[in-house]
């Protein structure tokens, strides 16, 4: 299995769990952007980018836990009529 595809999927899954609407949408957008920026990397640079992505996944996991401890009020965007 391709490690970058796997990282992309894990990052997106984690990003969707963020409690706050604005942070959640930013996280999803930023994950996609990061992979677009680095899509043509190869060799050592690609390995470095993957490691950075893995660190960001850990950060995201911690932020999901923190966000769920202090939930915010739902945004008007979430209460679609």
């Amino acid at each position: 299995m391709n490690p970058s595809i796997s990282l992309f999927r894990s990052l997106l899954r984690e990003a969707k769990k963020v409690d706050n609407y604005n942070f959640r949408l930013y996280a999803i957008r930023r994950v996609k952007l990061g992979f677009q920026i680095n899509r043509n990397l190869a060799g050592n640079e690609a390995d470095l980018a993957l490691r950075e992505g893995q660190e960001n996944l850990d950060i995201l996991r911690r932020q999901v836990v923190l966000g769920s401890l202090y939930p915010s009020a739902p945004s008007v965007m979430e209460n679609a009529v």
Binding site: N2, I5, F8, R9, L12, R13, K32, F35, Q36, R39
Partner: peptide, 10 residues
């Protein structure tokens, strides 16, 4: 591309 297909599956 491969990233888009991940998004479609999700």
């Amino acid at each position: 591309d491969s990233l888009d297909s991940v998004e479609v599956v999700m």
